[in-house]
Design a protein around this nucleic acid. Sequence first.
DNA 1: GTTGGTACCTGCGAA
DNA 2: TTTCGCAGGTACCAA
Lengths: 220, 220
Amino acid sequence: MLRKHTYQDELLQSKRAIALTSSAELGSTACLFRSDRPTAAAREKLFDKALTPSDVGKLNRLVIPKQHAEKHFPLQVNGPACKGTLVNFEDPCGKVWRFRYSYWNSSQSYVLTKGWSRFVKEKALKAGDLVGFHRSTGPERHLFIDMKPRVTATVPGVLPVQADSRPLQVMRLFGVNIVNVSTGGHREVDESSAGKRLLEIKFLPPAQLCKRQCLGALCV
Amino acid sequence: MLRKHTYQDELLQSKRAIALTSSAELGSTACLFRSDRPTAAAREKLFDKALTPSDVGKLNRLVIPKQHAEKHFPLQVNGPACKGTLVNFEDPCGKVWRFRYSYWNSSQSYVLTKGWSRFVKEKALKAGDLVGFHRSTGPERHLFIDMKPRVTATVPGVLPVQADSRPLQVMRLFGVNIVNVSTGGHREVDESSAGKRLLEIKFLPPAQLCKRQCLGALCV
DNA sequence: GTTGGTACCTGCGAA
DNA sequence: TTTCGCAGGTACCAA
C-alpha cells in the first residue's frame, strides 16, 4: 500500500507547513481508517462546494473557491509549503483521505489534486453533488469531508427518493446501488436541465461502498 | 492592468535566462507600451514566418521554425531557462507584447505560447499572413514583431484593399474596423480554401485598435 | 500504451 | 470599465 518513492518531500513539507492542522501524523498511506475516531461531536462547518463537471472529470482536481481556501486552508504561498502540502480528511465512514493541496499560480486557484480522483470514483460523485468540509473544534482540529447528492428539481413521484431524502441517484438492494441516474453523457448539466435526465440501470462498483463501516449503513 | 500576483517565477527565470536579450525589464504585464521608444532606425530583420492554420487556431501557439529559433532565439535547453522564458516584442504601434517562449520536447519545436493568442486576436491574423521578427542593432537589442497580410490571389475589384495593400481584412471608419472578413467560423483554413472566405460585417472590439498611438494611423 | 499527477494556460462571466 | 475567479483545457512526466 505504501508507494515507496512518493511522499517523502511532501511529508516534510507537510510537517513544516502551514496553519492547516491536518491529521498527517496518522501515517503515509493515501487512505487510512482512524483508530481514535472521536464521537461525532464538536465540528464546525467550514464550507460546501457544489461540484462542477471539471471537479469530477478528467482533470483530477477540485478547485477550492478562493475565499474559502484562504480563510480555512491557508498556504504559505512564499514559504516552504508554496508547492503544496498533503492534507488528510476523514469521511463519514471514518476513512481518511489524503489529498495534495496546492496553489496554481497560472490560474490563481487553490486545488486538491493527488488523491482527489480516487475519492470521486469511490464516492461516485457527480457534477452538482455537494462536498462539505468540516473541522473538529477540539484541540486536534481534524478535518472532515462529506458529500451530499445534488439538490435537484425532480418530478415528484416519478423517480425514487430514499428515506434519507436523497433523490434520484441511487437505489440500493442489499447495500448495492442498482440504479444510477446519469445525464446521458452531457457534460454541462444545470438545474434547469435536470428534468431531462435519463434513467440508466447499471451496477456500480463495490468500491463505492464504504468498506469498513457502511455496508449496512448506506453512508454515502 | 497589472495582475499583481502572477509572474514572479517567470520573471526570475527571465532574468536568469538566456542569450536572448529581451526587454523583460519593462515590466510584468502581458502587454505594455514602451516609454523609451527608439526611432525606427537600426533594426535587422531576423526572419518572417507565414502563419499556418494552427498558428492562428485554437492551439494558442506559434511554432518558430527551428533554424530561426536556434539562430536568433537560443534557449539553454538544459539550463535554468529549460522551461521557457518570457520575451517581449514591440509591435509597429509601439505596443509591447510579452510571450512565453519555450521548447516542447514532445514535438521538438520552439514555440511562443502564452500571450500569442491575444496577439492573433488583436491583430486579426489569419493563416497565410506573415509575421516578421526584427531586432534593434543598438546595444539594447530590443525585439520587434510585425505582421503583413497574406500575399493572396484575390478577385480584383471585388473586395476592398487598403492603401497599404493589405487585402480583405479590415476597413476602417474613423479609426474603427467596420469590416471583418472571416472564414465563417471554420478553424482549419488552408491556402486552397481561402477563396471561399465569406464577407461578414461586424464591429470589432476596441481592443483590436492600437490604443496609444494608432487611432489615426491604421497601424494594424 | 495507458493512466494519473503536476504545472502550465485561456476564455468567459461576474463583480 | 477592467479585474478576478475559475471552469475547462494542454503538455509532459513518471509509474
